[in-house]
Simulated assay, not measured.
Amino acid sequence: MKVIVITGASDGIGAELARQWAQRDGGGAALVLGARGLDKLQAVAAQCEALGAQVLALRCDVEQQHDCSTLIDAAVARFGRLDVLVNNAGISAHAMLDEVDDLAWYERLMRINFWGSVWTTHAALPHLKASHGRLVAVSSLAGLIGIPGRTAYSSSKFAMGGFFEALRGELAADGVSVTVAFPGVVDTQIRYRGLNARGEPLGRSAMDERGAMTVQTCARLILEGCLARRREIVMTAKGRLGRWLKLLAPGLVDRMALAAMKKDERPR
């Protein structure tokens, strides 16, 4: 039985990833699901149990280091081991820097997107080494290519990518794989719940949502990449192209990044 911990599992990519893992191999997984919204998390847990998985659902705010370590401790106490950690919890934001008066929410975004992953991973390391397990970090294309209006979000995701890239080398001798996923625009509510220039919920998406990837496809790609111990998962053709064009034609990539925004959200 494999024991999988998923943060940010109450909805979106995390919830769908939990459901897909639950139904894999006849429901033989043990899932430890963490999120801030316990009611929604328990609903996801019930869906996974109905698919045959054993589930432990715990309130976990990755902005708090204690919650991160408690989630890992509870997983090992309940199931005796840890095989996979998926750092999925995160928050989005959209604001032009010159519109921001108080940068305190930039720090909060970094605590959730970056430090939450660091704290949870640090607590999980000895257990993943013992199982020769798998680490997964759910980043974003904004962690590969800087997107105008997303200075806070992009910086947190770039930091996340650098951390896990360096950690991969540290863990290679222990047989622990590190997979970083870079989704593009996925059909979830993360951008609508993201923060605006005042650090308040945005209530809308500033990105062009046409052609957004389904959450089912995104979760499947992450699951497959994790099981195959892939280094990275860049999910869109534009993302793969943009990554290489950064080296060859950076100005073109800047224009592509700008085009990803809705026209009325672009800087003037």
Rank of each mutant, 00 (worst) to 15 (best):
A9S: 15
G12D: 11
G14H: 00
L17C: 01
A18C: 02
R19L: 15
W21Y: 14
W21G: 02
D25L: 13
G26W: 09
G28I: 06
G37Y: 03
V44C: 08
A45M: 07
V62I: 14
H66Q: 15
C68F: 01
L71H: 14
V86A: 11
N88V: 09
G90L: 07
I91W: 05
I91T: 14
S92A: 14
H94A: 15
M96W: 03
E99T: 07
V100Y: 03
D101E: 11
D102V: 12
L103Q: 05
W115Q: 10
S117A: 14
L125M: 12
L125P: 02
K129H: 11
L135C: 13
V136Q: 03
V136M: 09
S140H: 01
I145G: 11
I145N: 08
G149R: 01
Y153F: 15
S154G: 11
L167K: 04
L167N: 12
L171A: 15
A172V: 12
A173P: 00
V176E: 07
V178T: 06
F182Q: 06
R191E: 08
R193Q: 06
G194M: 12
G199T: 12
G199Y: 05
E200T: 12
E200A: 14
G203F: 11
G203N: 07
D208Q: 12
G211W: 03
G211T: 14
A212F: 06
T214M: 06
L221Q: 15
L221A: 07
L221N: 09
L221D: 10
L221R: 04
L223T: 01
C226Q: 02
L227N: 13
A228T: 02
M235C: 03
A237P: 00
G239Q: 09
L241I: 11
R255M: 07
L258G: 06
L258E: 11
A260K: 02
K263Q: 12
D264T: 15
